[in-house]
Amino acid sequence: MPKIVKAYFDAEHRNDPDALAGVFSTEAIVKDEGAVHRGPRAIRDWWVAAKERTHHVTAPIELAGSDDKVSVRARVSGDFPNSPVTLEFAFTIEQGKIVELEIG
Rank of each mutant, 00 (worst) to 15 (best):
A28W: 06
W46K: 06
G96N: 13
K31Q: 12
K69E: 12
V76W: 08
A49F: 05
P40G: 13
A90K: 09
V48W: 04
T92V: 05
V76E: 13
A90S: 06
V85K: 15
G65I: 02
S71D: 11
I4Q: 09
R38C: 06
N82F: 08
H37I: 00
I29P: 01
V48F: 10
H56F: 15
Q95C: 02
K69H: 14
V5M: 04
F24H: 04
R75N: 10
E88M: 10
I103R: 09
D18N: 14
L20I: 01
V72C: 10
K69F: 09
T54Y: 12
E100V: 00
E88G: 06
Y8N: 01
K3T: 11
E27N: 15
I103S: 13
S66G: 15
F9W: 07
E102V: 10
H13K: 12
R44P: 10
S25A: 15
A11K: 08
S66H: 13
D79F: 05
R53W: 01
R44L: 12
R38F: 09
P81S: 06
I29L: 00
L101K: 05
R73E: 10
E88N: 07
K6M: 12
R41N: 01
P60R: 12
P84G: 04
I29K: 12
I93Q: 04
K51T: 07
G96P: 11
E52N: 12
A11G: 13
I61S: 01
L101R: 03
L101P: 02
A64E: 07
